[in-house]
């Protein structure tokens, strides 16, 4: 009995980090059981350092723009721009030809009508700086956050165009 009593502080000490890990897992995965995103969105990739994006949205419709290279900015030719349709329920990105993309009407607000927004990951942690986390995109609403499977290679490669209206 004395031996058990002596071990209690050690058990308590070791329980604290275990409890923190369990709470972290719960706070990440439990909200996903109750909060379900429903509204899909469209995004484009293919931009250069000077943010000259090929696709923009005007009056809810996707417009294709020409790429203008300003020699003063010393920018390189941007990579090939592509459009993607993100299905939030299946969690997949599907490449979308421009002709099909023109059929959709988009809501360009940062937050969807059901309260979700797309945010970048957190790149810094006290010990582990992971710069690549910044271009990981997450779908977020209060405690819910889910990593998006997007075809994004670096943080300036992505442009959110809008939420798909029904």
């Amino acid at each position: 009995m004395n031996e058990n009593k002596r071990n209690v502080p050690l058990i308590v000490a070791l329980s604290i980090p275990v409890l923190m890990i369990v709470l972290t897992v719960i706070s990440i995965y439990v909200p996903t059981l109750f909060i379900k995103p429903k509204i899909d969105f469209i995004y484009s990739t293919g931009a250069n350092y000077c943010y000259k994006n090929r696709y923009t949205v005007e009056k809810g419709k996707i417009i294709e723009n020409g790429i203008k290279i300003n020699e003063k900015d010393n920018c390189q030719e941007p990579p090939d721009s592509r459009l993607y349709y993100y299905d939030v329920e299946k969690q997949i990105s599907l490449e979308l030809p421009y002709e099909k993309a023109q059929k959709y009407t988009l809501d360009t607000n940062n937050k969807s009508s059901d309260g979700f927004e797309i945010v970048s990951g957190s790149s810094s942690d006290m010990f582990f700086y992971d710069g690549s986390s910044y271009y990981k995109k997450f779908l977020k609403k209060s405690a819910f956050s889910r990593r998006l499977n997007m075809k994004v290679e670096n943080y300036y490669d992505y442009k959110f165009l809008g939420w798909v209206k029904e």
Binding site: P9, L10, V12, A13, L14, I16, P17, L19, M20, I21, T24, V25, I28, V119, S120, G121, S122, S123, D125, M126, D130, S133, K136, F138, K140, S142, A143, S145, R147
Partner: peptide, 27 residues
């Protein structure tokens, strides 16, 4: 576990240090 998630609603790094400090003291 956090995997780069944007934990902007709570100071996760500081809470971990709090837990670590408490663990070391009790140990």
């Amino acid at each position: 576990i956090v995997g780069g998630r944007p934990f902007s609603d709570w100071d996760y790094v500081k809470y971990r240090w709090l837990a670590a400090g408490l663990t070391h003291m009790i140990m």
